[in-house]
Design a protein around this nucleic acid. Structure first.
Lengths: 174, 174
DNA sequence: CGTGAAACTTTCTGGTG
DNA sequence: CACCAGAAAGTTTCACG
């Protein structure tokens, strides 16, 4: 699983455009890439079958959903054994507040990205979902001032080769 | 900006379904929500105009794009002043390896999520894009074993109310 | 908010270099 | 084999009730 795939310049351009707007029509996509719509469709389907494209997701504004405060929680799970960490990860993943869970090298085993309503909600979450549990040895909370989602995750060659790199989403500079 | 918005159960169900698959047709969406396709379209357009839906993006497999190794870099920028941190963030954001940049509370000012080809590539990135620069006082690198993208970021009420919460994307438990 | 029809997109077929 | 043009099927979108 996850072998690298050969992507020609047309594939890269298609991926680049689809990352700017995944709802662009094949007609417009084809026009911008310089091939026929049916060819675009073939390419995209091939990229999907190859597992390069995993899916299409919505980007939502957490603030508008009543989750204006985000934080990163560093968590030590001790003892760090399969029978404890498996259930721990599943439990955290199923929290409505959890956005992403990372299993990391280093002294802090997990980093959990959460979005909550406010400080009181964050305190409740830390106390109830983390420190109340026996396997959680330590939690360190860092608040997120601001966050930037970066570029289109394409091979450097592609970006260098394809001249115009259009607007990344993400906030303005501080 | 970013005031909370009133979302009725239909809006929440639409968002929930669109998060599972942002390419579902309005016809199918309407059938599952139990309203007419045109009503779904109205709702989605309203959510877009309200800023709840920020956009549609592609989820790509970093491994298939030759970025099989991911890491989190904790960075101290000193002195932590606007004229230094602004350019720093812009420079990091424009790295093809950067996925997300967080500005945080706590001793480490920034956390940068990166995806690279391999260990040599990561070493090169840390040395060239971070420690080589005067404003970067300290970098701490943690590798990512595994990562899970969690639930649909909807108000807890919505998940509780709407019974079936379908498959989240993300890997299996360790 | 729903119906139905017009406009558009996606998708397939068959043919070409 | 990848590509394209055009036609068929399906989807989005709009005016109106």
């Amino acid at each position: 699983m996850s072998d690298s795939v050969v992507l020609d310049p047309v594939d890269l351009e298609i991926l680049r455009l689809l990352q700017n707007d995944a709802r662009i029509t094949y007609r417009d996509l084809a026009a911008q890439v310089g091939v026929a719509a049916s060819t675009c469709l073939d390419r995209v389907n091939r990229l999907r079958r190859a597992g390069v494209i995993l899916g299409h997701v919505l980007r939502l504004d957490p603030g508008k959903l009543g989750r204006g405060l985000q934080a990163l929680l560093s968590v030590q799970v001790r003892p760090h054994r399969r029978e404890l960490v498996g259930p721990f990860v599943e439990r955290i993943r199923s929290l409505p507040e959890a956005l992403t869970v990372f299993h990391l090298t280093g002294p802090d085993d997990y980093l959990v990205h959460v979005a909550v309503r406010d400080m009181a909600d964050l305190q409740r979450l830390v106390l109830d979902a983390f420190t109340a549990h026996r396997e959680v040895a330590r939690v360190e909370t860092r608040l997120i001032f601001q966050q930037w989602d970066c570029g289109p995750l394409l091979p450097p060659d592609a970006r260098a080769a394809s001249g115009t790199l259009t607007a990344n989403h993400g906030g303005a500079a501080p």
